[in-house]
Amino acid sequence: MTAPIDILLDGQVRCVAEGSSLQQLMDELGLQPADAGTAVNGQFVPRAARAEHHLQPGDSVLLFRAIVGG
């Protein structure tokens, strides 16, 4: 059993399993790969790299979605 760690998800504290990948976080949130863009600590993480991007305690994850715009 791995210990949980705290990360920030869109500015809110969230607990995830130690060693969780960004892709696993997306899965937990019920998001399809193309549903959102991802950044960790201000750096863009491409869709193809999410499975190998393991989250660390205190990481700040931001998710971005398509919206209308001018």
Partner: peptide
């Protein structure tokens, strides 16, 4: 046609705008 991006988790849905765009 211009579009945007928005931080998503707490945000409401787009009410179908993006699909229709």
């Amino acid at each position: 046609v211009t579009v945007g991006l928005k931080r998503s988790l707490g945000a409401a849905g787009d009410n179908g705008f993006i699909g229709m765009i």
